[in-house]
């Protein structure tokens, strides 16, 4: 990793309270450029509050935060140029079509050739066929994909994904993971919040655990593993996990078919068997 460059996100001593409830009590963290950073925590740990401060939606009570080199409190307009936020609930317009959503965001980012940008993203996220349909007819996974596609418009160097897979079924979750990995592959910095340990394990270069308003651990997965007691070797009969059973039953093991399955939200059963 290119550790020589200044970090994309720098947070120092961030504090935030809602009335009497202190949500963040001095959060420090650095996110390297082009990395995926997972902020892990249970419900109410303050993950969303942190993301809202970093995306200029909330003001911190104390501490500083900079994104892409700009201070979130004093240079919010520059920060907004540098970021995209994919909030906890899919931030898509249900009444517009998928394509219209993308065109709208492209116009609001003051880009030229908005139609071509929209068509390109529909293609990239396997939404071309659904592009003209109203988003209210989309499945949860398609909505999330559109949501992420909207966040990519204008290639912002930093993307916030706030619990991107909460409420998604396993297939859709893997779709989102794939999209996230692609993003980081293109050099985008991703700050991801999640309450799923597996998600952080799958995606993140670095994982921080936010607990009671403080970062209690901040390491790579390999380093985190060393915090745990050494692995013991035991012989246990391995029962298939429910996830494995799910994919075995729906026949979704091939990489290529994942998107097409999600595009038919009403299809009860896939008749085609996969090669994988």
């Amino acid at each position: 990793m290119r550790t020589q460059q200044p970090p994309a996100i720098v947070v120092r001593g961030l504090e935030k309270s809602y009335q009497d409830l202190q949500v963040l009590c001095g959060v420090d963290l650095d996110v390297e450029k082009g990395s995926i950073f997972a902020l892990l925590g249970s419900n109410g740990a303050g993950k969303t509050t942190a993301v809202k401060i970093l995306s200029t939606l909330l003001r911190a009570d104390a501490g500083t935060a900079s994104v892409g080199g700009f201070d979130v409190a004093t240079q919010p307009d520059n920060v907004r140029e540098a970021i995209s936020l994919t909030g906890q609930f899919a931030a898509v317009d249900e009444i517009l079509s998928g394509r219209e959503n993308l065109v709208l965001v492209a116009r609001l980012r003051h880009l030229k050739g908005t139609g071509a940008i929209a068509d390109d993203l529909l293609e990239r996220f396997s939404l071309t066929d659904a592009g003209a349909r109203r988003v209210s007819t989309y499945s949860g996974g398609m909505r999330r994909r559109l949501d992420i596609a909207m966040s990519l418009i204008g290639n912002p160097p930093v993307i916030f994904l706030d619990e991107p897979t909460t409420g998604l079924d396993p297939e859709a979750r893997i779709e989102v993971w794939k999209a996230t990995k692609e993003l980081a592959g293109r050099g985008t910095t991703v700050l991801l919040t999640t309450q799923y340990l597996e998600e952080a394990e799958q995606l993140a270069d670095r994982i921080a655990i936010l607990h009671q308003g403080k970062i209690i651990v901040n390491d790579t997965l390999a380093e985190l593993r060393q915090l745990l007691p050494p692995a013991e070797v035991e012989y246990v009969e391995k029962q298939p996990s429910l996830e494995e059973i799910f994919f075995a039953v729906v026949g979704e093991t091939g990489e290529d078919d994942k998107y097409s399955a999600a595009e038919q939200p009403n299809a009860k059963r896939k008749t085609k068997s996969n090669k994988g």
Partner: peptide, 13 residues
């Protein structure tokens, strides 16, 4: 109520 409002607010508009 929907996330759309926050998306607009986090954009350079």
């Amino acid at each position: 109520q929907s996330g759309v409002f926050e998306r607009f607010q986090s954009m350079p508009i």
